[in-house]
Design a binder for these strands. Sequence first.
DNA 1: CGCCATTTGACAACTTGTTTCCATATTCGT
DNA 2: ACGAATATGGAAACAAGTTGTCAAATGGCG
Lengths: 181, 181
Amino acid sequence: MSLSCREDPEEPLTHIDEPKSLLVREALNSPAEARALTEIMLTIFRINGRLLEKGDALVRTLGITSAQWQVLGAVSLAAKPLTAPQIAEAMGITRQGVQKQLDRMTKEDLFEKRPNPRHERSSLYWPTPKGQQIYSEAMRRESLWAQELSEGLSGPELQGALDLLRQLHRRLEAPLPKEGE
Amino acid sequence: MSLSCREDPEEPLTHIDEPKSLLVREALNSPAEARALTEIMLTIFRINGRLLEKGDALVRTLGITSAQWQVLGAVSLAAKPLTAPQIAEAMGITRQGVQKQLDRMTKEDLFEKRPNPRHERSSLYWPTPKGQQIYSEAMRRESLWAQELSEGLSGPELQGALDLLRQLHRRLEAPLPKEGE
DNA sequence: CGCCATTTGACAACTTGTTTCCATATTCGT
DNA sequence: ACGAATATGGAAACAAGTTGTCAAATGGCG
């Protein structure tokens, strides 16, 4: 949280060669659009980190983590019981990761397993009344927080940013061309 | 990657009660700005996931992970050798996490330890020529990728989205009010 | 100078999620 | 109906990061 060892930024210590020059040269060669997009990507990383912090803090006193909140949200949004792989697909993470959260939340009486008529081993999961109550309280808090956070932001600008981000997301989802692996 | 078990979305399976109604009610109570912001946050989560995938794929054939790329970037941006805690501060993670990456990369001849005149045990780290070369190639690939990805996107819209995201980031950084913990 | 709080490195345990491997269940083509 | 391809769960290993503990180094203050 603090750099006690080298506060003053100018004194030249031991340095021999400078990769920075390469970084700068590459950046200047790019068109403005690509540079803006790179900045957007970096900002998304930073915001993502902050959002995870805030999200965890928001639901901590409900006894869940934001990962568990997300699982509750995926099932609630589907409005019907889902299997672990279905939830994983909806959340964009692996089924094993989802399964761990489901196991924990089932043990904590937030989810219940139901027999799946379509599959002998792959149970369906549905929130218990306790799980539903916790989820709705989480959503209430999120809603209040979003209202506070959006205070004074321009509606059209928000919508414009959302449109662009969705476009970006669409461009990112399809191709993963193996990169000469 | 595919939901084989429940493709048809309409057939009512076993469901008893519906938290969805709560979700929808909350959403409709919120002003449009808050709803757009919530959508932006969800989209950021999704884009973040895709970006991490792509970033890893981009540098995989260079023999580094995106975490290591980030460490190289932090030191290159500073343009002088840094200690592990300084890099951690710059990256927003803990010094132990950075130290793990530094240890690995030092072993792989991507970083070299230099004696720190200010501290007997806390070494300075600087990329070796090999590390510099790998980093500059990573940046070259990133630049090409960003150009490709930004193709056809409107410059002003990109800039507008960036401005809004930065504003959002600024609003997210300060207050973490403990939430009645 | 000496005490003491802070910083740091080293180490270990834990968390969250991914990957890999295997055994079983399911689906689909013939 | 049979067999192959695909899904699935479970366990184990791995990856990246956090937290906690301890000892050594540093720096400030009386």
